[in-house]
C-alpha cells in the first residue's frame, strides 16, 4: 500500500476489462453503483480489489434486497439483488457492486474466496433472504434456529404478528399461556 498511484476511475476500467459483464452504472447521492452480470461478479470483485489505482481492499458489507411486489423493469430485471459495498483504504472511497438474482435460481457465486469476511455476511443473506451462495464453505443458518422454515426477510413473508391482549380478548390469549398473568396465585 506504499506506492502512491493516482486513483483511477473504476467505471471506465471495468467497462474496458469486462465489456459485457457491466450492465449499467447508476449515480445517486454521490454513490456509484455498478450493476454487473451475476456469473461474473467474483471476477469483478477480484479486479476491483487488485488493480492498481482501484485497490478496493476492504469489504464493508454485503446486503440483499427483495423487490417483491414490483413487476420487473428494465433497470430491475429480477426479484432479488445482492450488493457488495467495497471500500478502499488507500483512496478513502466507496463503491457498490450490485447484481440481480432471479427468483427461480437464487444463487450467487461466493465471495469468500476474495474476502474471508464474506463468510458470515453470506450466511446471513442465505438465512434471511434465501439467496444461496455457491461454493460457500459453511452454508448453515446463522441467526434463525437451524430448524426454522422459510426466510423471514423476504417481502412475501408476513412480519408474524400476534394479537395484542385487551380486556375483551384477554381470556382467549391467557388460554395459550401455561400460567396466565394471575396464574401464580394459589387457590
Amino acid at each position: 500500500m506504499t506506492q502512491q498511484t493516482q486513483p483511477a476511475n473504476p467505471v471506465e476500467l471495468l467497462k474496458e476489462r469486462f465489456p459485457e459483464a457491466v450492465k449499467y452504472v447508476k449515480q445517486f447521492a454521490n454513490e456509484t453503483t455498478i450493476v454487473v452480470e451475476r456469473k461474473q461478479v467474483i471476477e469483478v470483485l477480484k479486479f476491483l480489489r487488485d488493480t492498481k489505482g482501484l485497490l478496493y481492499n476492504f469489504l464493508s458489507d454485503i446486503s440483499s434486497v427483495d423487490y417483491y411486489p414490483d413487476p420487473p423493469t428494465e433497470q430491475r430485471p429480477e426479484r432479488f439483488a445482492v450488493s457488495y459495498h467495497l471500500y478502499s483504504l488507500l483512496y478513502n472511497r466507496r463503491i457498490r457492486v450490485k447484481t440481480f438474482v432471479p427468483e427461480d435460481d437464487a444463487t450467487v457465486p461466493t465471495a469468500t474466496t476474495v474476502w474471508e469476511a464474506a463468510n458470515w455476511l453470506e450466511r446471513e443473506i442465505w438465512d434471511m433472504m434465501g439467496i444461496f451462495f455457491e461454493g460457500h464453505p459453511d452454508p448453515r443458518r446463522v441467526l434463525m434456529p437451524a430448524d426454522w422454515d422459510g426466510h423471514p426477510l423476504r417481502r412475501d413473508v408476513p412480519l408474524g404478528y400476534e394479537t395484542i391482549m385487551f380486556s375483551f380478548n384477554v381470556e382467549e390469549i391467557l388460554k395459550h399461556k401455561p400460567t396466565g398473568k394471575e396464574g401464580r396465585v394459589s387457590e
Binding site: 413473508v157 408476513p158 412480519l159 404478528y161 400476534e162 401455561p178 400460567t179 398473568k181 396464574g183 401464580r184
Partner: peptide
Amino acid sequence: SSGGVYNNYAIVQGVDEIIPVD
C-alpha cells in the same frame, strides 16, 4: 413482559408464555 415494541416473528410475546412470572 409482553413482547414490547417487537411484535414479530422472532420474539416470544412475553416470557410468561414459557415460564410463570411473579
